[in-house]
């Protein structure tokens, strides 16, 4: 029987899978590793073991599952990476519209208000719906754009990790990419919320 307490304690989710802190992860390999570690760590293996071993199995298998859940999802993975790199800043910016979107967001909110009013008091629902649907499409496209930019920034991040591994000093680039990723994630979550609100009203 393997002992979960004997294995080294991982410092972060990437380390759980013995992976470098890179954003591109091969999913098939991640799953294989997850299953392999599950065999070793799952509490089912320790029903008759000591309290300490059972406790360790519970801690390490929950960490494994948390790590797999987080790394499997590209956006969660980025959020997590920025978190452990000390670069995730949501805070007050989260509720603020990115400046370049201000005008469109303002219009959208107006249409939303009108639709709510029209629903309550009767009015031209069809016209408003059509307007909101086209606005939703517009924001969906922006979301796709953000995702493309995130993908590009993620590639840049991985390049800095590789460069650093071969001894280069990329501190400046690293910080720049992190803040770029952070800004894109904030924009992404803002637009997603917006789209969510519109979809709720259109239901």
């Amino acid at each position: 029987m393997s002992t979960p307490t004997q294995a080294p304690v991982a410092t972060d989710y990437f380390a759980v899978f013995s992976l470098p802190r890179k954003l591109w992860i091969e999913m098939g390999a991640l799953e294989q590793k997850f299953l392999q570690l599950s065999w070793k760590l799952h509490p089912d293996n320790f029903v008759n073991a000591s309290d300490a071993e059972r406790e360790a199995s519970l801690r390490r298998s929950s960490e494994l599952n948390d790590a797999y859940r987080t790394l499997r999802n590209p956006v969660d993975r980025m959020e997590y990476l920025l978190g452990i790199e000390g670069a995730r800043r949501e805070g007050e910016q989260k509720q603020q519209a990115p400046p370049e979107l201000l005008e469109e967001v303002f219009e959208l909110n107006e249409s939303l208000d009108e639709l709510r009013e029209a629903k309550a008091e009767g009015g031209d629902l069809a016209g408003l719906r059509a307007r909101l649907e086209s606005a939703e499409k517009n924001f969906q496209q922006k979301l796709e754009q953000v995702d493309r930019e995130l993908f590009a920034a993620a590639k840049q991040w991985d390049a800095t990790v590789d460069a650093e591994a071969s001894g280069a000093n990329v501190h400046g680039e690293r910080e720049a990419v992190k803040s770029r990723l952070n800004e894109l994630l904030n924009r992404r979550s803002y637009i997603r919320n917006l789209v969510g609100n519109v979809q709720k009203e259109l239901l």
């Binding site: 509490p43 519970l58 298998s61 929950s62 960490e63 599952n65 948390d66 797999y68 859940r69």
Partner: peptide, 11 residues
């Protein structure tokens, strides 16, 4: 902890 997370799971 979102639904359908493999258990044990923690936050």
């Amino acid at each position: 902890i979102p639904r359908n997370s493999t258990i044990p799971a923690s936050a």
